[in-house]
Simulated scan of single mutants.
Amino acid sequence: MNRFKRVKAVDVGTLTDGAVIERSIRDSESFAVIFDRHAPYIHRYLARRLGAGIADDLAAETFLVAFRRRERYDTARPDARPWLYGIATNIVSQHRREEEREYRLRQAYVPATSEASHDDRVATVVTAQSLRRMLFGALAELSTGDRDVLLLIAWEELTYDEAAAALGIPVGTVRSRLNRARRLLRDALGGDSTITIEEAMSNG
């Protein structure tokens, strides 16, 4: 997955992402630090959305796109992760059908449970599986914009401001999309107000 040569951490390890990217304009190998800092998170995000089989290639593509666009990065921003999530989300947008198919597959998949499990443990597992099936089915039905906002906040724990920066939309739009997505998913989960959407998605 790593197509960038590494530089010694002592050279730029204490710099902000913005400073590292600024340096990488004249010293391209410095960009490897951005990869090392954020690749695991971007890879996880892509694997969650499109499956592990394609995540390696798309994570590499994300960082290659970022590398080519690094001169456009606002170096006053100390954390490049929202920017990288935005690039990754744009790449996901090219694979919408694959993403929806991935959720349908997860909706259909039911992990085996041990027959030796206690009754209460079995009941808990069955309930969790039922919630996950409903959740992934609902995710496949969300509009792309609502799904992007929801997953960046619920899975990747971005703030509203960070999600807005990642997607290039106003914070108010993030709030309205998130509220709509939460309402639709809560309806899909039977209107259960005792569990938050983030909790339902925490092991997604």
Score class of each variant (00 low, 15 high):
48 R>V: 03
45 Y>N: 12
30 S>N: 15
74 D>F: 01
58 L>T: 15
61 E>A: 10
76 A>L: 11
121 R>T: 07
22 E>T: 14
58 L>S: 06
107 Q>R: 12
64 L>F: 00
86 G>W: 02
78 P>F: 01
118 H>G: 03
28 S>F: 12
15 L>N: 04
90 N>I: 11
103 Y>T: 12
98 E>K: 13
94 Q>R: 15
50 L>S: 03
79 D>L: 13
112 A>N: 05
60 A>G: 07
99 E>K: 00
40 P>Q: 11
85 Y>D: 02
125 V>D: 04
71 E>S: 15
42 I>Y: 08
90 N>C: 14
29 E>Q: 07
99 E>V: 05
127 T>G: 15
107 Q>F: 05
96 R>T: 12
11 D>Q: 05
119 D>H: 14
62 T>R: 07
126 V>E: 08
115 E>P: 04
122 V>F: 04
83 W>I: 11
82 P>S: 14
9 A>Y: 06
7 V>F: 01
46 L>Y: 04
50 L>C: 03
92 V>D: 04
91 I>A: 06
40 P>W: 15
20 V>M: 06
16 T>N: 06
43 H>T: 08
3 R>D: 06
15 L>S: 06
45 Y>I: 04
118 H>L: 03
25 I>H: 14
123 A>Y: 06
20 V>S: 00
130 S>K: 02
6 R>F: 02
80 A>I: 12
54 I>T: 10
129 Q>Y: 05
20 V>W: 04
66 A>C: 13
53 G>W: 09
8 K>T: 00
18 G>I: 15
25 I>G: 15
65 V>S: 02
3 R>M: 05
107 Q>H: 09
67 F>I: 07
128 A>P: 00
104 R>Y: 10
111 P>C: 02
28 S>I: 14
117 S>K: 00
50 L>M: 09
31 F>A: 02
65 V>A: 10
35 F>H: 03
99 E>I: 08
128 A>G: 12
98 E>Y: 09
41 Y>M: 10
29 E>N: 11
48 R>Y: 02
37 R>L: 05
125 V>M: 13
32 A>L: 01
57 D>A: 12
33 V>Y: 01
67 F>E: 01
62 T>H: 06
21 I>M: 10
44 R>H: 04
82 P>V: 14
103 Y>S: 06
100 E>V: 11
125 V>E: 12
49 R>L: 01
43 H>A: 06
95 H>D: 03
121 R>N: 03
86 G>L: 09
13 G>F: 00
7 V>M: 03
120 D>L: 13
103 Y>R: 11
119 D>M: 15
22 E>D: 11
54 I>Y: 08
94 Q>K: 13
62 T>G: 08
62 T>K: 04
110 V>C: 00
58 L>R: 15
5 K>Y: 02
114 S>C: 13
30 S>C: 15
87 I>G: 05
24 S>T: 14
14 T>W: 05
108 A>Y: 07
77 R>C: 09
84 L>P: 03
13 G>S: 01
56 D>E: 04
51 G>T: 10
22 E>I: 10
19 A>N: 07
84 L>Y: 09
109 Y>A: 14
111 P>K: 10
93 S>M: 05
76 A>F: 13
78 P>K: 02
29 E>K: 12
31 F>P: 00
9 A>P: 01
43 H>E: 10
3 R>Y: 00
6 R>C: 03
29 E>G: 13
103 Y>N: 10
31 F>N: 05
29 E>A: 14
126 V>D: 01
16 T>K: 01
69 R>M: 10
103 Y>I: 14
65 V>N: 01
26 R>Y: 11
